[in-house]
Design a protein around this nucleic acid. Structure first.
Lengths: 222, 222
DNA sequence: GTCTATAACCAGATAGAC
DNA sequence: GTCTATCTGGTTATAGAC
């Protein structure tokens, strides 16, 4: 891994563990046994690092969050979405822990964030309408947009909500599964007779995961 | 107003307008044409100021958020709750804009916050069950707790969600009414035939307010 | 590309006079 | 209760040697 990527990687870890505010560029450099000067050779400043991290986040999301394929089973698609969404929220949760601060300090990033979230909202809306077309849920156009907002708000602020409810700030894998269960609950209000069995299967699956041993799978642990 | 209250009042304003992170104790003092030394005579440090603000917040919430009176009309009670909840979120929104940071720096405050939120969750749950007993909604015990969490998450993070969606950080009165509409939407999934007319009336009321002129009423403008 | 050294700055906090 | 003066320490950022 080159130096630039090392800095990004370490920054993500430290930000997630201690919070973005608590971690200075000096902390990042010293954690890598690197001089501050070297860090500033690779990045203009701290905001520059965060912008690069945001680029990773949005790229990841764009890659894993394509509209539903009508030939596929709508529910297995939904599972894929939920898994990748919350994996992402896990991997970059520092960003939503401090969203206001981070965006307030960097107009360029804020604009990028707003544009990206608009696209994302539209993607979520299309997925909801896809589930409706597969008769998995019953929902009108207006409520589909409302639900898209509710889902986005819930997913975005799930980790801050969890962290604020316990003294030790550490997040665990189960917290993420509880978030997925929360999203399923939001869907359930619109579930049809046809889908309720499948909904319950999904709930069952994540309930099991939420109560299993708290080991972090390799895919999530970095 | 005495000096201590002036400091608290000014701190709330500046925190809400610029964010807690951007405002130092020096900023607060200089905004009051006061020396930093004087500020530190009245408060031990910045966290001490924030703790006092939190005490105001929780006191306000405790006062306005009593369990539903079974003799009263459940829906007018609900209106009272919604109004006072979102007025509170408006008045102290800086706190939720930076919740993670603020709590991470102050274990004492975090413990107080956790305790208070536990009480609040129980209050919300009781209100939901009260609405069920008035046959305004149909919901089981398990879902009542789920809904209570969803409502708390939504209300808490409504203002950060809104602020993150626009370039200018300023919040307006209408944003708050949209938050109330969002909460009503979350209730609607459980509404009964008996209540749907009243639900729509409430929606209508807040929809009007959400689209009226953006003047801030005196009660909210401080 | 990386290091050392350090400048510029600012937030947090205190001592002691009035 | 309030002010002036000041200190400590951390954060950001850069210059210049290697």
């Amino acid at each position: 891994m080159n130096t630039k990527d090392k800095i990004i990687h370490t920054s993500i870890s430290l930000f997630n563990e201690h919070g973005e505010r608590a971690i200075s560029t000096n902390h990042i450099a010293s954690h890598l046994n690197m001089s501050p000067g070297n860090l500033y050779y690779h990045f203009k400043n701290k905001e520059d690092i965060i912008r690069h991290i945001f680029a990773l986040y949005s790229e990841h999301l764009s890659t894993h969050f394509k509209p539903i394929n009508k030939n596929d089973d709508a529910f297995s698609q939904l599972t894929v979405y939920l898994d990748s969404l919350f994996e992402l929220m896990w991997r970059y949760h520092f960003f939503y822990d401090n969203l206001g601060d981070i965006l307030a300090r960097d107009t360029q990033l804020k604009q990028a964030y707003i544009n990206f979230q608009l696209e994302l909202l539209e993607q979520v809306r299309k997925i909801i309408l896809g589930l409706r077309d597969s008769e998995m849920i019953a929902i009108n156009e207006q409520d589909a947009l409302e639900l898209a907002h509710t889902l986005k708000l819930t997913v975005s602020f799930w980790t801050p909500y969890i962290k604020a409810r316990r003294l030790s700030g550490a997040l665990a894998e189960q917290d993420i599964y509880h978030g997925i269960l929360k999203v399923l609950t939001l869907f359930r209000a619109y579930s049809t007779d046809k889908s309720s069995d499948k909904m319950n299967q999904l709930r069952e699956k994540y309930t099991q995961l939420a109560h299993s041993a708290p080991s972090i799978p390799a895919a999530l642990s970095s």
